[in-house]
Nucleic acid binder design. Structure first.
Lengths: 121, 121
DNA sequence: CGGCACTGCATAGTCAAGTAAGCAAATGTG
DNA sequence: CACATTTGCTTACTTGACTATGCAGTGCCG
């Protein structure tokens, strides 16, 4: 499936979802916070390629769709797992953040360096 | 914490994260796909309030930050998590245990060692 | 000292998302 | 029939994310 086809699908999918309820463009405008009927028309016709997450969230809510799925269809990056920001980046201090883009070789050196540090206590 | 404070924090947080690695604005530009140094400067100084998910994803990847957390800090709607997985017991191949019991002094030494490793690339 | 490379940053311009206004075709209503 | 309302849709315009370019400061090497 080409990217164009997938882009095309977002608008068609949203239009199908709206009609299945069914709601008019202006009904959606009233139900959402700031998604105007003209703009929605542009989205459904594919003129808007990548609506913002906020707009997608509004539509997902009023249509009863899965927000995550809309993000994917709009080709946005979607987070995978629960946030463990505290643990991975903050809790153990600065070193953890710096570790993530090391090469395997460098990791080994860091590990050995840590071990060596502990022997000097 | 007010919403304004949280908005303000995105840039500062990203700057802190970049400096802790440490990388220059241009190093980030090289490491990412399309995040220019000037633009990153704007983000860090708060001139850009809501960088796109894609940009946040690039930065999360190169800094080793949690993408979901960045989305929240940028005030984007975030899909609910799929499941509560076990938190990783290691990061970048280095056991968390090896890092969590370091003294602040030792962490500083590790940080400097990592920075030094990266200058030798 | 000169020159070179790299730093952060300022800024004018570009581009796509999003708004506002209105038009033509249905549909309804008396 | 006349008229009002609602429909989907178009389009000019605004706004803000993002790009391209360049400039001043700093350190380094000869």
């Amino acid at each position: 499936m080409t990217e164009d086809q997938k882009n095309e699908l977002l608008g068609e999918y949203l239009k199908r979802s709206r009609l299945s309820i069914p709601m008019s463009l202006r009904a959606v405008e009233r139900a959402t916070d700031g998604v105007t009927n003209g703009y929605l028309s542009q989205i459904e016709s594919g003129q808007i390629k990548q609506p913002s997450p906020n707009v997608l969230y509004q539509l997902a809510s009023t249509y009863g769709l899965d927000y995550r799925d809309l993000l994917v269809r709009a080709r946005h990056h979607v987070p995978v797992a629960e946030s463990n920001e505290e643990k991975t980046s903050e809790l153990a201090g600065i070193p953890l953040r710096a570790l993530s883009d090391l090469t395997p070789d460098e990791r080994k050196q860091v590990t050995e360096y840590i071990a060596w540090l502990k022997t000097r206590r």
